[in-house]
Amino acid sequence: MAAGGDHGSPDSYRSPLASRYASPEMCFVFSDRYKFRTWRQLWLWLAEAEQTLGLPITDEQIQEMKSNLENIDFKMAAEEEKRLRHDVMAHVHTFGHCCPKAAGIIHLGATSCYVGDNTDLIILRNALDLLLPKLARVISRLADFAKERASLPTLGFTHFQPAQLTTVGKRCCLWIQDLCMDLQNLKRVRDDLRFRGVKGTTGTQASFLQLFEGDDHKVEQLDKMVTEKAGFKRAFIITGQTYTRKVDIEVLSVLASLGASVHKICTDIRLLANLKEMEEPFEKQQIGSSAMPYKRNPMRSERCCSLARHLMTLVMDPLQTASVQWFERTLDDSANRRICLAEAFLTADTILNTLQNISEGLVVYPKVIERRIRQELPFMATENIIMAMVKAGGSRQDCHEKIRVLSQQAASVVKQEGGDNDLIERIQVDAYFSPIHSQLDHLLDPSSFTGRASQQVQRFLEEEVYPLLKPYESVMKVKAELCL
């Protein structure tokens, strides 16, 4: 049975990233139509530049190519590739079939990587351009969430054990800070992308030097003109047959890092959902379990974690691919890159769409948070109580021993009897502590235990987050809708 299948058929496997999760716009960027249309555009740009620099290419040939950029006979191309065992030459023939007058000058002087690699770089750039505003929107939604809850005390956790208090907004800023680093890295790697350009079979530009009869300047002009037509500021000066596969490492490393950030955020949300302090959106008709109707599973956060793990592992592909590119190139890269580049971007696209949807509907339960604080705060307040007693004339050592005994009794009630923490009640009825009984409410005010959390939130948002989001103001209103 021949390899390949009808990918629109229910009898043929289709990647869930495309069929179930990723956005239509990201799927289109990695589609065959987008790819092969870009090949034709690159052939047109090459012909236009070659004509401008004096090669015998007519206006009629150029116009014929322009008129057929979208006229792609995919069936013919597939048949040609089956016959020739070469995808680029299959599309040269297919393009030439609908451009008979231009057929002889299509791909003039070029090698397969002229269309293959340059198209990949265009796709990487455009895919990054799709991700950047999506990530900015996630940051914006979380920034709104953090600002609104900047002063809401909550129990902090280290080692997932109760620690000092923080605020809900401050905790959210930990998430935002990681995503801001990801946004900066995505922008950097996007701006650092260079075009492969017009380089020939081993990167020496020998074929173009021959076409222009040894004119170095025209060869350099050709490279520059096509690079500018493709919208790049610069091209690699040095290439082998391909652009260095280190570029793929750079791009997928940034995406993998984004995956790590999203995994951490969504894990926190899942843990908070278990504590009943916070939940992701839950639709009115949504079913959490087929057997347990009360369940409210954090399905979206779980999906993000599941896909983020996949995204983090994909960076190993370009690392290994770059390491086995012998001399000017081997074909070890080809099949692998067809999979890992598309999957990385479709996965990143999915987790950003999902995280935006989550961040637009996060639900906080202040009463649950308050109750958990009441359970733990008495123990945390013991040092403040000791200091207040010393100020009232008591002995630190005597007070410490009193607190120690009462704390152990209260802990026994919590752990052995399943009761509430009654340390404060014990202190309130103990005559030894009568000098500070009137101060206990103040000493137990949760806001006095959150330090500068709310001020940190305000400063972080104003100095770091809002300036970073400013270039994306025009796209901030787009909502994230999930079908599944």
Rank of each mutant, 00 (worst) to 15 (best):
D422A: 05
A22R: 10
C27W: 10
R141D: 06
L108W: 14
E370M: 14
L121G: 07
R194S: 12
E50W: 04
V363M: 11
G419T: 07
S407A: 14
L179T: 12
C173A: 14
M278R: 01
E280I: 00
Y114P: 02
L469P: 01
Q286K: 03
Y466I: 13
K233G: 12
I249S: 06
T111Y: 00
D117T: 00
E250T: 11
V198G: 11
N118L: 01
K66Q: 14
F433T: 06
A392G: 12
C27V: 15
V478E: 15
D223K: 01
K477S: 12
M181Q: 10
R404S: 11
H93S: 15
K229I: 04
R303M: 04
L362V: 08
S447L: 15
D87C: 00
G451T: 02
K170Y: 02
L69C: 15
A150Q: 11
C99M: 11
R270A: 01
P10C: 14
T158Q: 00
G5S: 13
Q325N: 14
D6P: 06
R270Q: 05
Q409W: 06
L209M: 07
R459V: 08
P10Y: 15
R404W: 12
D445T: 13
D398F: 09
F157R: 06
L130M: 08
L271K: 03
E50I: 06
F460I: 04
V390P: 05
D178R: 02
C483E: 14
M387A: 14
S31G: 10
R125M: 11
H86M: 01
D32V: 13
N336V: 12
R190I: 08
A322S: 10
A335V: 08
A77Y: 15
G288V: 02
W175G: 07
T244A: 11
G451N: 01
A381Q: 11
T350S: 14
S301F: 02
Q397H: 08
A392W: 15
L55F: 03
K470E: 14
A78V: 10
L423Q: 05
K367R: 10
G104Y: 08
W39L: 04
E425K: 10
D248G: 01
I237F: 08
L258G: 03
R270N: 02
K391G: 14
N126Y: 11
S290K: 03
Y466F: 13
T158A: 02
L131T: 08
L468M: 13
L179G: 05
A90W: 02
G5E: 14
L341D: 14
D430T: 11
P471T: 13
M76K: 12
T202V: 07
R196M: 14
A273W: 03
P10W: 15
T354I: 15
E370D: 14
Q456A: 08
K367P: 06
I106P: 00
G8E: 15
R194K: 11
Y13F: 08
M76Y: 08
D216S: 09
T244Y: 00
L444E: 02
L341R: 08
L135T: 14
L121V: 13
A273Y: 00
G288R: 00
M26Y: 00
L271S: 03
E228H: 10
V168I: 09
G288M: 02
V92C: 12
P446N: 04
L255Q: 07
D398Y: 13
K477E: 15
V363Q: 08
E250P: 13
L252N: 11
Q221L: 14
M316D: 09
L179R: 01
K224V: 10
D268F: 03
V465S: 02
D317G: 11
F208A: 05
H7T: 14
Q210I: 14
Y21H: 04
V219G: 05
Q177T: 13
L307F: 15
Q184T: 14
A344W: 01
I123W: 03
L443Q: 02
Q41H: 14
T350A: 14
R125S: 11
A322I: 14
N71M: 11
M65I: 11
K66Y: 12
A308P: 03
L352T: 11
L128E: 06
W39A: 11
A453D: 04
G361A: 15
L271R: 02
D117Q: 00
S31W: 03
G4K: 15
L469Y: 08
L319Y: 09
N68P: 10
E64R: 08
Q408E: 14
A77V: 12
Q41S: 08
M476E: 15
A47N: 04
E220G: 09
D422N: 09
I265S: 12
N68W: 07
F195A: 06
I249P: 03
I57R: 01
D215M: 11
K470R: 13
A322K: 04
Y294Q: 07
L311D: 01
R196I: 07
I369C: 11
H437G: 07
E220T: 10
N384C: 11
T227L: 05
L69T: 13
V262G: 08
S19R: 14
D223P: 00
R426Q: 09
L406H: 15
G240W: 00
I72Y: 12
I386R: 01
R300F: 07
F74K: 12
T166D: 01
C172L: 06
A49W: 03
F95D: 00
D441W: 07
E343N: 12
E328H: 04
S112H: 00
F212T: 07
G419N: 13
T204S: 14
G361R: 15
M299E: 02
R137L: 14
V92F: 02
I403L: 05
E463V: 09
C98A: 12
D6V: 11
A127F: 04
E64T: 12
M26F: 03
V478K: 15
